[in-house]
Design a protein around this nucleic acid. Structure first.
Lengths: 183, 183
DNA sequence: AGGATCATGTAACCGGTTACATGATTCG
DNA sequence: CGAATCATGTAACCGGTTACATGATCCT
């Protein structure tokens, strides 16, 4: 039950239409909670009937007609409640680690290329995050909101750093393995 | 489409019944690919009709009667194919980061406790992984399989290390924030 | 007028989650 | 015998994914 709260957060930061939200989910919030436009429209409908958001007036509703949403007090309250509520961490799920584990059984043939590709992808993402940090978070000590957003970005940077280092190591190890680890 | 391959890997390591698999998914493979017994039974059924696994003979099938599965050659081939196939990384999804982002908008009231709780959980998980490393992976240079499994464990250790460090920092920052960051 | 693109949707599917059912075995 | 536990399932639901539909607007 996180998508509705991601949307509430985004709408509080700035009232938007469904498509604008979709675009904003392609960066910023979307870096750690992605969503497609279908999901977003579905969820906007629910949030509206629940009384958490409403369409800004002066817009008639019709297919293909832009609708701007804003958060109602009930929506803000719900977001505050959810933010403070205890939640257990979801169990990890990582395909790449699973594949390495499988490779220990069926061999590493063909795996190295994809490891290199992932390494490159993570390097790019890391560079993107570092660019954002340089641009949006100068030396430090901003408003509380900025300090929290910076903290979130730091998590992204540190995670990508971890992956690039780990993948570099994985590539090296796989490369120097006896050519086939069959069985 | 990863659960069937997780199961194939587990069954190659050791033929098992559904419940045994469920238990093994509570550790080891389950550390990065969890599954409930309902999922596992459903998937075992599919894998059997697809000809990837079969029940070991000398067991009649009846409700409540134990069934042991083993992987067939086609199953091993499918696992090797999947392991080598290129796969794009799935977009990140992390509730905790989302909550911090929301807290930047609605305030951090009530959040610190849960951050501390998560920190403690990650510390425990880290200790568990380190214990496994001490027990199962002495100084190094084992068989190729062991090197790969050790690599996977290292990922777990490094990830938990990241989270403990980041959460410690997050707790500190939230604690020293002006008591309410409302709007 | 016609094509691109903006904008909002519908429908079908799939994997993971939760709740519940039921038979077999073991132990006091 | 009865309770606990081992073991295998069924059913309903829910969020995320993929494919497709359709109206409005802008630009040439």
């Amino acid at each position: 039950m996180s998508l509705p709260h991601a949307i509430l957060t985004a709408l509080l930061e700035k009232p938007s239409s469904g498509l604008e939200l979709t675009r904003r989910f392609d960066k910023s919030i979307g870096y750690f909670w992605s969503a497609t436009h279908q999901q977003i429209y579905r969820e906007l409908g629910k949030l509206e009937t629940e009384g958490f958001i409403r369409t800004l007036p002066a817009e008639q509703s019709a297919r293909g007609q832009k609708k701007n949403y804003e958060v109602l007090p009930a929506g803000r309250a719900e977001l505050a409640r959810w933010t403070a509520a205890a939640q257990d961490p979801k169990p990890q799920r990582d395909v790449l680690l699973l594949r390495l584990r499988a490779a220990a059984v069926v061999g590493t043939a063909g795996l190295e290329d994809d490891l290199r590709r992932h390494l490159e992808l993570h390097r790019r993402q890391l560079a993107k995050y570092q660019e954002i940090e340089r641009r949006d978070f100068p030396p430090d000590r901003g408003a509380p909101q900025d300090r929290l957003r910076h903290l979130v970005l730091r998590a992204g940077i540190d995670l990508e750093t971890f992956w690039t280092q780990w993948l570099a190591r994985a590539v090296a190890e796989v490369a120097e393995l006896p050519t086939e680890g069959r069985d």
